[in-house]
Design a protein around this nucleic acid. Structure first.
Lengths: 212, 212
DNA sequence: AGCTTGCAGTAACTTTGGTTACAAAGTCTT
DNA sequence: AAGACTTTGTAACCAAAGTTACTGCAAGCT
């Protein structure tokens, strides 16, 4: 674990902090699709991403979902950071988008470290900042963009995260993430295919050219 | 200024911090409708609210607006807090919702204080937390709710902030906040009036009973 | 092979909300 | 009081996206 820690976080954290994380943290590997955290669940530790990606979802009372953003290596979950104050229950759901390696740090350490390590403090602030910015982007998408543009953005993002020009997902799964219906996704995907931007297959979408 | 400071922040901050704020901060009074911060503007100081309320808006490239949330006494602007890192430009617009008193603190002090004062640190974390939660609520609204429900929520919120059962605003202004058109707002308001929940007047809306 | 199940394509229809257009009423100015 | 401007009400229409329903197809199973 120390090796991965140094590789991904060595340049942001001071030596002693890396040491401490190495001592109290536990290494964890999760496979694609695994549920890492659900709404209403108690938060006991915070994740530091080493590799892979985690998608963060919001859900309403009726069970309708919406993708908020992805966590990537070097990220942590800002939601977790707030567990020390107020409610300790999660407001979001976290699912492994790809196979993912992460280090879990008990939340008790967090407050201690924010006083002790300047770099940790900055890391936490920066996490909050990126998360706020990503929430803003999500708001921009759903408030100002039409479904076809949102779908396009979703495909781009997913290709970036997946690191290949093939997206493995059914139309229904995409519909859940965008909080729309399967029929609408099929319709819009078909029109993208007609424009030559993608190629549709069963359970997968081949990306040809998404830009312009 | 010291009096207001002690009154509103005395129970969260330690004496020395209050002292420091008193020394470096400047007291400011703004009247309803005043623009406090615009998108793209540089952030040089952070506000601590004493009284009144500030509304925070997001805007897209075409100039379409959307109300994000309100800042109230005891709040600060989490967006400002991130100025130390990354871009120092504002991503949002801030307009005084009512006459407002606030204390402006130069941003340079922020980093210094997060190391020095534990209560300041917690205050900053808590601000981030509330802001994230409010962003989540905004997302819930625009993603999961219909316009009639959003309007109802808006009216409730605005009555709470304004502290009276009268809302002074034109349908056009409400339409801007909700990012919809004037005609739609008029339509929905009229149907609320028919249900006996509100009373419509020129430039104002009288609230009768918004709850069920 | 025949059967079942899940995925995708498509048509027809409904709903929500955005757009255009115009009238009526209130407010302000001169 | 006349005219200009703002605000609101309303009708008629349009577009985006959600819904229902049915089809064909691919994959897996017995």
């Amino acid at each position: 674990m120390l090796k991965e820690l140094q590789e991904k976080y060595g340049y942001i954290f001071e030596k002693e902090l890396i040491e401490e994380i190495n001592q109290v943290g536990t290494f964890k590997e999760v496979t694609e699709g695994m549920l890492l955290m659900d709404i209403g669940q108690y938060i006991r530790s915070m994740p530091l991403l080493i590799s892979g990606a985690i998608k963060i979802l919001r859900e309403d009372e009726e069970g309708d979902e919406l993708l908020l953003y992805y966590l990537e290596p070097g990220d942590t979950c800002a939601m977790t950071l707030t567990c020390c104050m107020g409610s300790a229950k999660s407001e979001i759901r976290a699912i492994a988008e790809t196979d993912t390696q992460l280090i879990m740090v008990p939340v008790q350490k967090m407050e201690e470290w924010t006083g002790k390590y300047r770099n940790w403090r900055n890391f936490v602030f920066e996490s909050y900042h990126t998360r706020l910015m990503e929430m803003l982007e999500t708001i921009d998408s759903i408030a100002f963009m039409n479904m076809d543009q949102r779908l396009l953005k979703y495909l781009k993002e997913k290709t970036r995260i997946g690191k290949e020009d093939m997206i493995n997902a059914t139309h229904q799964q995409i519909a859940y993430d965008l909080h729309t219906s399967r029929v609408v996704v099929s319709r819009l995907l078909k029109s993208l295919e007609k424009k030559g931007m993608i190629e549709l297959h069963r359970n997968s979408i081949k990306i040809i050219a998404l830009e312009v």
